[in-house]
C-alpha cells in the first residue's frame, strides 16, 4: 500500500487528485530552485547590508546615520511588492533595467537589510560596557575587542532574530511572482489558473515551503544552542 493510497483513505486527502500531484511535483522542485536562489542571495546581501547599517548606527557616523535611519523607516514601512514594482517597473523610466532575478534579489536585500540591521544592533547593544572595559584594561584594541569579545556575544543575542528574518525573507520571496519570476508562488498561481486544481496545487506549495523552511528552523535552533554561552 503506497502513501497515496493511505492518504486517499483520509478525509480531504481522499478527494485529491494524486496523479496531478505526482505529475506536477517536478515543476515545484524546479520553482523551489528559483525561490532558493533569490532567497539565498537576498539573505546574504541583507546580512551584509544589515551589518554595515548596524555598525553605522553603533558608531554614530554623522550623515550616514541619518541616511541609515531613513532607509530603515522606508524599508520597513513599505510592502515588498511596492518596492519590487518600483525597482522593476519604476527604475526603467530612469534608464535602469534589471532582470527579474536581479530585481528580486535587490528587492529582498532592500527589505531584509533593515530587519537584519535591527537584529544585529540588538545583539551589539546587549553586550555590557563592562565587557568593553575589561577588554580595554587588558590592552585590547577596538578591532580585537569587536572580533574576540563583542561580535561573538552579539551573535548569541542576535541569532534568534536573524533566523526569524531568514525564514521571513524566504516566505516573503513569494511576492516576486508579481514581477513575472517563476518562483513557487508563480508556478502555483499558473497551475491553478490552468487546471483549477486549487487544493492539490496549494498542498504542493505548502509542502514545498515546509521542506525548505523546516530544516532552516532546525539549523537555527542548533546554532542558537551553539552560541548560547549563558547556558553552558
Amino acid at each position: 500500500m503506497d502513501g497515496g493510497a493511505i492518504a486517499a483513505g483520509i478525509p480531504f486527502f481522499g478527494t485529491l487528485d494524486w496523479d496531478f500531484i505526482a505529475e506536477n511535483t517536478p515543476v515545484f522542485i524546479e520553482a523551489a530552485g528559483v525561490t532558493l536562489n533569490i532567497s539565498f542571495w537576498g539573505i546574504v546581501f541583507s546580512l551584509l547590508l544589515g551589518l554595515v547599517c548596524a555598525m553605522i548606527l553603533e558608531l554614530r557616523i554623522p550623515v550616514a546615520r541619518q541616511i541609515t535611519l531613513a532607509y530603515i523607516e522606508i524599508s520597513r514601512g513599505t510592502p515588498l511588492l511596492i518596492q519590487l514594482f518600483l525597482i522593476f517597473f519604476g527604475l526603467p523610466k530612469l534608464g535602469i533595467r534589471w532582470s527579474p532575478e536581479l530585481s528580486a534579489i535587490i528587492g529582498l536585500t532592500f527589505l531584509g537589510g533593515s530587519y537584519m540591521c535591527e537584529a544585529i544592533r540588538a545583539g551589539l547593544e546587549s553586550v555590557g560596557s563592562i565587557q568593553y572595559e575589561s577588554a580595554q584594561v587588558l590592552g585590547m584594541g577596538r578591532l580585537q575587542t569587536m572580533r574576540f569579545i563583542v561580535i561573538p556575544q552579539a551573535i548569541s543575542t542576535s541569532l534568534p532574530g536573524i533566523v526569524a528574518n531568514v525564514i521571513f525573507l524566504i516566505k516573503e520571496s513569494s511576492v516576486v511572482s508579481g514581477i513575472a519570476l517563476a518562483d513557487l508562488m508563480y508556478q502555483a498561481k499558473d497551475l491553478i489558473g490552468m487546471t483549477y486544481d486549487t487544493a492539490e496545487t496549494l498542498l504542493l506549495l505548502v509542502i514545498t515551503y515546509a521542506v525548505i523552511l523546516l530544516p532552516i528552523s532546525i539549523i537555527g535552533t542548533i546554532l542558537e544552542r551553539r552560541f548560547d554561552y549563558a547556558r553552558r
Binding site: 572595559e133 575589561s134 584594561v137 574576540f148 556575544q153
Partner: peptide, 13 residues
C-alpha cells in the same frame, strides 16, 4: 596595570 572590577567581567563566550 591590571584591574579587577566589582562586577563579574569574564568574557562569557
Amino acid at each position: 596595570v591590571g584591574m579587577v572590577f566589582q562586577s563579574y567581567d569574564l568574557f562569557p563566550n
